[in-house]
Nucleic acid binder design. Structure first.
Length: 685
RNA sequence: GGCGAGAUAGCUCAGGUGGUCAGAGCGCAGCACUCAUAAUGCUGAGGUCGAGGGUUCGAGCCCCUCUCUCGCUACCA
């Protein structure tokens, strides 16, 4: 939807990448390439715009990674911040500033914001009980506590989740909890935290988004927001007991930091301040003037933060504007599978930049052409090759090349003078004039794929115009006609330097150099007198080169190799558990049994209700295997069952025992069972 | 299970408020052309728009049910 309101300036942010790993194509397709395209377009239109980016460097995962590697959190974020920043720069994401949340100015900005909200009573205080490590004098987040899983008795379950059985836990559920830091038993201690009462802003959110942005926000964003609001918002803690992050600026808050979701979006503001300081301009109008248009580019996983929580923070603080639009993108899959950092199923930007040197625009093009605007999309290397060879090379590169080659051949590299335009010329000119406007419309409505296609249509138009007019055929008989044809073809090339620039900045620059002209602004687009007759152009070079099968196959092979390496092959068994005496094992009464009945538990995804003949009795067991087996395939199956496990109620059904299953690293489950002809009720020992 | 988003030509996807909306690009087939990185241009084949009902003079487009996919969420003894 076209936004009717006129804005004086634009503040465009792109989600802050979390500094615990490198960037991959999913980040680019869903946030940075579209944001960069949009910003470059605005700049070409001579809009006042600031484009903000930066690394998100706080939060527990970074502290854990640091702890695992035996380095400090600062070491981790320094490493990835530099890598990410360098990759962005080389890839051509044109941030006005790429900052980081460990900067002093960010700590100041977020502290000030917290303090102001605190002073004005915007928070609610609550006490909770949390584990505390006395020897390290610190509270422990759930991840910092290891103990025995109350479910499966795995002794190295984390406080938030048991990685053995997959159960999500509360730290207080663990038996024999130990601090990861000291190995000692932590004590429960009361701790105070500040909560942002999101629920108090429900009416405001409804008015602002559900009524105010019904038509101009993307359906995926609007739907998600509505869902959250309808489900009812809860107060959310804005502080944590942790020593990595922004210190809570209160004397009573020793050892507490701002929760990462609170400080991260403020990073946009801090970065703007930092940029403004460097530029010697004032920052506040970029965040507080209602005539500033604030736009957040994010992935769909961030919708709740950017459409609900951060706007509430801004609203609660009182002096800030809220976003005018939040164009959230869906996810990009890779060769049909979800991109996964931990499984190394990704195309990493820093590797691409080395392996496809000088091909930034190819990746930009492919990612834009496949941008997951309305639903998850798939990136395949084959498609990457096709788009490069059949579109960039064959349509855009080829058109430019044939025009320049012809100009050199017939007119000694000088732009020829056009004479009388015929009907065909006028038709082409009308199109040249119309295309920039169509691109603008698409971009302003965040329809990036459509805009890209329109841009390519200009090159298509050029190819058609040349082919229809066949200057190579008529040069001898009608050289004046050829002058007109090539003049128009050259003007199309010149127009391409403008309209292609936001999409393919490296290519546009190269083309400008070949045409021996500077970079022109968007308002010149559609003009068919950009090149003056007699203007000398430079020698043509190829804008794009074909990508051969071997290159693509090598990438596919590389992916498959890492994939294989990252599944079962890479499996590292859990370390040996503590020794046990036989009599401890003997307490476990494990029997052979047979499944008599199986029925999926209604309203659950994983639970299967089983009736088991244990030889002793017939009993009901609830087991989380419904994702792996159909009920009908289970009946008659032999199993091993732990029969003296204390009963437990699950979704209203009491489970008497546990079926023994083996779990493969890829997540599949298999029965541990006796041979089919074995009698039920015999003991496993 | 709840909530949200999707399911449209071989592939990747468009289809504001229902009535030339059955489309684009790529791929494929034929023809034309040779300036060009065997590139380009033209023409064509291809879909009962996930399934089934309903509203309407008329529905990919509105309503209901169902199936499948993705995300968030609950569940994993």
């Amino acid at each position: 939807m076209q936004n009717k309101k006129q804005f004086k300036r634009y503040t465009v942010t792109s989600a802050l990448p979390y500094a615990n790993g490198p960037l991959h194509i999913g980040h680019l397709a869903g946030v940075y390439v579209p944001a960069d395209l949009y910003v470059r377009y605005l700049r070409s239109n001579e809009k006042d715009v600031v484009f903000i980016g930066g690394s998100d460097e706080h939060g527990v995962p970074i502290t854990i990674k640091a702890w695992q590697q035996g380095v400090t959190p600062q070491d981790i974020v320094d490493k990835y911040h530099e890598l990410i920043k360098k990759s962005f720069a080389e890839f051509g994401i044109s941030f006005d500033i790429y900052s980081r949340t460990s900067n002093k100015i960010h700590h100041e900005t977020s502290s000030e914001m917290f303090k102001k909200m605190y002073d004005e009573g915007k928070f609610v205080e609550k006490y909770t009980e949390q584990y505390y490590d006395e020897s390290h004098q610190t509270f422990l987040s759930d991840r910092y506590i290891i103990g025995t899983c109350p479910i499966c008795s795995y002794e190295k379950a984390y406080g938030d989740q048991c990685e053995n059985c997959g159960t999500s836990l509360n730290a207080t559920d663990l038996i024999n909890p130990r601090s990861v830091l000291s190995g000692k038993e932590p004590v429960l201690r009361k701790t105070k935290h500040w909560y942002l009462p999101l629920d108090q802003y429900t009416d405001w959110l409804k008015e602002w988004i559900l009524e105010g942005h019904k038509v101009d926000w993307k359906t995926n964003v609007y739907g998600q927001v509505k869902s959250w609001i309808d489900q009812g918002l809860q107060p959310r803690a804005v502080t944590r007991d942790l020593n990595w992050g922004v210190k809570v600026p209160l004397s009573e808050a020793e050892g507490k930091v701002l929760y990462v979701w609170f400080d991260a979006p403020i990073g946009y503001i801090s970065a703007t301040r930092e940029w403004a300081e460097q530029k010697g301009v004032e920052w506040e109008k970029w965040w507080k003037d209602p005539e500033t248009r604030l736009i957040h580019f994010i992935g769909k996983d961030n919708i709740v933060f950017h459409c609900i929580i951060f706007p509430i923070m801004l609203k609660a603080e009182g002096s800030y504007i809220v976003p005018d639009n939040v164009p959230a993108f869906e996810f990009l899959n890779l060769e049909g599978q979800k991109i996964s950092t931990s499984n190394n199923w990704a195309v990493w930007l820093h590797e691409y930049l080395v392996e496809f040197k000088g091909k930034q625009d190819v990746l930009r093009y492919v990612l834009l052409a496949n941008a997951p605007e309305t639903k998850d999309n798939d990136f395949t290397w084959k498609d990457f090759q096709t788009r490069n060879n059949s579109e960039l090379v064959a349509i855009l590169g080829n058109f430019v090349n044939r025009t320049l080659v012809l100009t050199h051949k017939y007119f000694d590299a000088l732009v020829p003078q056009a004479s009388q335009f015929n009907e065909d010329d006028l038709k082409a000119i009308a199109e040249i004039e119309a295309i920039p406007e169509r691109i603008s419309m698409s971009l302003e409505n965040f329809r990036f794929r459509e805009a890209l296609a329109e841009m390519m249509n200009l090159a298509r138009l050029g190819n058609k115009y040349l082919t229809d007019n066949e200057p190579w055929k008529i040069f001898k008989s009608d050289p004046d006609r050829v002058k007109s044809v090539l003049n128009i073809s050259l003007q199309i090339c010149a127009n391409l330097t403008i309209v292609a620039a936001p999409f393919l900045p490296f290519t546009a620059k190269k083309l400008s150099e070949m045409l021996n002209i500077g970079q022109m602004k968007w308002k010149e687009a559609g003009n068919i007198h950009l090149l003056k007759p007699g203007h000398r152009i430079n020698n043509p070079e190829l804008l794009f080169e074909k990508i051969e099968d071997e290159t693509i196959n090598a990438q596919i092979e590389k992916l498959n190799a890492t994939s294989r390496a990252n599944q079962n092959d890479k499996f590292v068994p859990n370390p040996l558990k503590e020794p046990v005496q036989y009599d401890e094992f003997a307490k476990m009464d494990i029997r052979t049994g047979t499944i008599l009945e199986a029925e999926k538990v209604a309203k659950t995804k994983k639970l299967m209700k089983l009736t088991i003949d244990t030889g002793i009795d017939k009993r009901t067991v609830v087991s989380g295997i419904a994702e792996h087996y159909d009920a009908k395939d289970l009946i008659g199956r032999k199993v091993c069952i732990l029969v003296n496990l204390a009963p437990k109620e699950l979704r209203g059904i009491t489970s008497h025992g546990m079926i023994l299953m083996a779990e493969n690293p890829d997540g599949s489950l298999g029965f541990v069972a006796p041979p089919d002809n074995y009698v039920d009720g015999t003991e496993i020992k």
